[in-house]
């Protein structure tokens, strides 16, 4: 009965969105680009691959924003000399081959609110770990103020070995760079798609994903937020939390009501992640700024 109600709810939202003119075709081209990711303070340059909106490499993966009921018309162009593949987590789009220097087209209708990770499943988790993982944000209506957090951690030795097709032992994984949208603090503080800037009374939706290999523990200063969607551990939906885990390949949508002014950090409370190259405080941190 509950499942029926949920399906009915999703359909109702989809119909409502389409009737109000929200439903649309969203076209994007994603380029698979290979390059070097610059870490905080130029401590290191890591071999990296990313999905970008242009043929020019950028370490931050693209994120795409849709409304429930929208169709995503996607062209994926592989600029790499290696073959890749394309999957959108929790959808029918799975393991679509993208040959080297070739392209494919994909159409995908997004019928449910949530954060969806798109990634390369080739030699899993190698290519996803090396950077090929971004997020799709699907909201119930396009009027919410939204922010996008793609968390990831990086072990320089692992990046170098995997790039040279040398096997790694994940049991020895000890990352030393921790990023949101490919940036560590203080650089992450300049990312307007991630750092919340709002006014008292605003309701914010945060679309987040962990595309790294490790588990993270996200902590909000100043606020509790409500988990309104997640792809794992559904019992968490409805929880009001200030600290919560985000497993590898887990996604969430949070609803945050800004009830007071001020500046409030958000960071990984595995405090080892508050470092870069083992130096404090160059790690996984953002700022909520409320006027």
């Amino acid at each position: 009965m509950r499942i029926k109600n949920n399906i009915f709810g999703v359909l109702a939202v989809a119909i409502l969105c389409c009737n109000t003119g929200y439903c649309k075709n969203v076209k994007h081209t994603l380029y698979i680009n290979k390059g070097l990711m610059k870490t905080v303070n130029n401590y290191a340059q890591l071999p990296y691959i990313a999905f970008n909106f242009t043929p020019k490499f950028a370490s931050a993966n693209a994120h795409m924003v849709l409304t429930v009921g929208d169709s995503l018309l996607l062209t994926i162009k592989n600029t790499d000399s290696q073959a890749h593949a394309f999957t959108v987590q929790n959808t029918a789009v799975a393991n679509i081959a993208v040959p080297a220097q070739d392209s494919v087209k994909i159409k995908l209708k997004m019928n449910q609110m949530g954060t969806y990770i798109f990634y390369d499943p080739t030699e899993y988790p190698k290519n996803r770990y090396l950077g090929l993982a971004g997020l799709i944000a699907v909201d119930t209506k396009p009027t919410y103020k939204s922010y996008y957090w793609n968390f990831k951690e990086h072990d320089a030795t692992f990046n170098n070995q995997l790039d040279k097709n040398v096997a790694v032992n994940w049991d020895t994984y000890y990352p030393s760079f921790f990023t949101c949208n490919s940036l560590s603090y203080p650089d992450s503080g300049k990312d307007t798609t991630a750092n919340i800037l709002g006014n008292v009374g605003d309701t914010i939706h945060i679309f987040m994903a962990n595309t790294g290999q490790a588990q993270h523990a996200i902590h909000f200063h100043g606020f509790h937020s409500k988990i309104i969607q997640t792809n794992k551990y559904k019992k968490y939906i409805g929880f009001s939390k200030d600290s919560f885990p985000l497993e590898s390949m887990q996604t969430m949508v949070l609803e945050l009501v800004l009830d007071k002014a001020g500046a409030y950090p958000v960071h990984d409370h595995n405090l080892l992640a508050m470092t870069g190259n083992k130096m404090h405080p160059y790690g996984m941190m953002l700022i909520i700024n409320v006027k």
Binding site: Q215, A217, H219, H224, K235, G238, F239, S240, K241, D242, S243, F244, P245, H269, N270, L271
Partner: peptide, 20 residues
Amino acid sequence: DGRPLPKSFVADTVNITPGE
């Protein structure tokens, strides 16, 4: 985290990450 759960649950294993 200082808030009642919408619905309590019975579990013989509870995982708690840093800060929770």
